[in-house]
Amino acid sequence: MPTNEVRLLRSAALSDVAEYAYGAVVPPDSPLVFAAGACPLDEDGTTVAVGDYAGQARQMMRNLSTALAEAGAALSDVVKTTVYVASTRQQDLVTAWEVVRDQFGDHDPPSTLIGVTVLGYDDQLVEIDALAALKTS
Results as ranks from 00 to 15, higher is better:
Lys135Leu: 07
Asp123His: 15
Gly45Met: 10
Leu41Val: 10
Ala12Ser: 11
Arg101Gln: 11
Ala69Thr: 07
Arg7Phe: 06
Ala132Lys: 02
Leu75Trp: 00
Val33Gly: 12
Leu119Cys: 02
Val26Trp: 04
Val83Phe: 00
Ile114His: 07
Ala130Trp: 00
Asn63His: 03
Leu32Glu: 14
Ala18Glu: 09
Val116His: 03
Leu14Val: 13
Glu127Ser: 15
Leu119Met: 04
Ala49Met: 09
Val26Cys: 05
Met60Arg: 08
Thr88His: 04
Asp52Arg: 09
Val116Trp: 01
Ser76Phe: 00
Lys80Asp: 08
Thr46Ala: 14
Val126Arg: 02
Lys135Pro: 08
Ser76Met: 01
Thr95Cys: 04
Val50Tyr: 05
Val50Asp: 09
Asp92Ser: 11
Pro27Ala: 13
Ala35Asn: 06
Val50Leu: 05
Ala71His: 14
Lys80His: 12
Val50His: 08
Thr66Ala: 15
Thr47His: 13
Ala36Asp: 11
Asp123Leu: 01
Glu127Ile: 02
Ala12Asp: 13
Leu93Lys: 02
Thr88Gln: 08
Tyr22Ile: 10
Asp108His: 12
Asp108Leu: 14
Tyr22Cys: 04
Ala35Gly: 07
Arg89Gly: 00
Thr117Asn: 10
Cys39Glu: 14
Ala130Gly: 04
Val99Asn: 06
Arg10Gln: 03
Gln59Trp: 12
Val94Gly: 00
Gly105Tyr: 11
Leu125Asn: 02
Leu68Trp: 03
Ala57Met: 15
Met1His: 11
Pro31Val: 08
Pro27Glu: 13
Phe34Tyr: 09
Gly72Cys: 08
Asp44Arg: 14
Ala69Met: 02
Pro28Leu: 13
Asp29Leu: 14
Tyr20Gly: 13
Thr136Asp: 13
Tyr121Ala: 05
Pro31Cys: 06
Ser137Thr: 14
Ala24Gly: 09
Tyr121Leu: 07
Glu19Met: 09
Val25His: 08
Val116Glu: 03
Asp44Gln: 14
Ser15Tyr: 02
Asp52Ser: 12
Asp92Lys: 01
Gly115Leu: 02
Ala24Tyr: 09
Ser111Arg: 12
Arg62Met: 05
Leu131Lys: 03
Leu64Thr: 05
Asp106Arg: 05
Ala74Gln: 14
Asp92His: 08
Ala13Met: 06
Leu9Ala: 12
Leu131Glu: 05
Asn4Phe: 09
Asn4Arg: 14
Val83Trp: 00
Glu70Thr: 11
Ala38Gly: 04
Gln91Thr: 13
Thr82Ala: 13
Leu64Val: 02
Ser65Phe: 01
Gly37Ser: 09
Ala18Asp: 10
Asp77Gly: 05
Ala130Leu: 00
Val48Ala: 09
Val6Ala: 10
Gln59Asn: 12
Ala54Cys: 07
Gly45Arg: 12
Leu119Trp: 02
Gly55Pro: 11
Thr66Trp: 04
Asp92Gly: 02
Asp42Glu: 04
Lys80Met: 06
Ala74Pro: 01
Val78Ser: 06
Leu14Arg: 10
Gln103Leu: 03
Thr47Ile: 11
Met1Thr: 10
Leu125Arg: 03
Lys80Pro: 00
Glu43Thr: 12
Ala73His: 08
Gly51Ser: 12
Val17Ala: 10
Cys39Asp: 12
Asn4Cys: 07
Thr66Gln: 11
Lys80Glu: 06
Ala12Gln: 06
Arg62Ala: 11
Ala74His: 09
Pro2Asn: 13
Val78Asp: 08
Val25Cys: 11
Ala54Leu: 06
Tyr20Leu: 04
